[in-house]
Simulated assay, not measured.
Amino acid sequence: MLFEIEVSTREKFQIVDITSEVQTLVYRSGVKHGIVIVFVRHTTTGLLINEAESGLLQDIRAQMKELVPKGAGYAHDLIDSNAHAHLRATLFLNPEVVVPIDRAELQLGTWQRILFIELDGPRRRKVLVKICRC
């Protein structure tokens, strides 16, 4: 089953916890055992599984900005001035994450959350969620 989550961001760089939305889709699907594949089709976004603690999220943002600064003379900036967003997505994030499902529950660790990272917002984005029965 393929589902879609719409994420509307309000900031240029924003981290959104989408774990609850994914879990709700798992419940709705009726799948008790399997996997969920969460995928973004946007090259200036990405996904990450990590803790959603505010200090850590600030650290992630700060490190991305420090290691890949905006306006550092990237060739792609000649097209639309967002090379930094593409590079941050490529170097730090994935377009997909896979999580096992057992008894209709995402099998994430105690502090693990599925995080959607917007790098070129604000925008309305779509996240695909494929739920597979095993």
Rank of each mutant, 00 (worst) to 15 (best):
E11R: 11
W111R: 09
E105V: 08
G46Y: 09
F13V: 10
H86F: 12
S81K: 14
V127M: 06
E51F: 10
R88M: 10
I131W: 02
R61T: 15
M64Y: 10
R41T: 14
A104K: 04
V26L: 06
I35F: 07
E105K: 15
S20H: 12
R103C: 01
F13Y: 10
V97R: 01
K126P: 00
L108H: 13
L56P: 06
E118Y: 07
V98D: 01
K65Q: 13
R88S: 06
P100M: 00
H33D: 14
A62F: 14
A72F: 13
A75F: 15
T43R: 08
L48F: 14
K126F: 08
Q23G: 05
T9D: 11
E11L: 15
E105R: 15
V22T: 02
A104Q: 04
P100W: 04
F39P: 13
F3C: 07
L128V: 14
R124C: 03
R88W: 03
V127C: 07
I117A: 05
V36I: 05
W111P: 11
G30Y: 00
H84W: 10
R113N: 07
T44Y: 01
T45W: 07
G109I: 10
H33T: 14
R123Q: 08
S20C: 06
V97W: 00
F39W: 15
G121A: 02
V99K: 10
E118A: 03
E53R: 04
L108D: 04
V40C: 00
R113H: 03
E11K: 15
S8G: 09
D77L: 01
L108A: 04
F3L: 09
T45Y: 07
V40R: 00
L56S: 02
N94Y: 12
F92P: 02
G73E: 00
V97I: 02
Q58W: 07
T90A: 08
E4I: 09
K126I: 04
N82G: 01
I60Y: 07
A52F: 06
E66N: 12
G30S: 00
I49T: 01
Q23D: 02
E96A: 12
E11W: 07
K32P: 03
D80P: 12
E21S: 13
R41S: 15
N94Q: 15
L48T: 07
T90W: 04
L25D: 00
A85G: 07
K65L: 13
G55W: 09
R103F: 09
Q112W: 09
V98C: 09
Q14W: 03
L47A: 09
I131K: 08
V127P: 08
F13K: 08
V38P: 08
H33M: 12
I49M: 01
L119E: 02
E6S: 11
Q107Y: 01
P69C: 01
G109T: 06
S81W: 04
Q23S: 05
V31W: 00
I117P: 08
M64N: 05
K126D: 02
L67S: 00
D102L: 04
A62C: 05
Q107L: 10
L57Y: 11
C134W: 13
A89L: 10
P95K: 15
L115A: 05
H86G: 12
K32T: 02
L48N: 11
L48K: 13
V7Q: 04
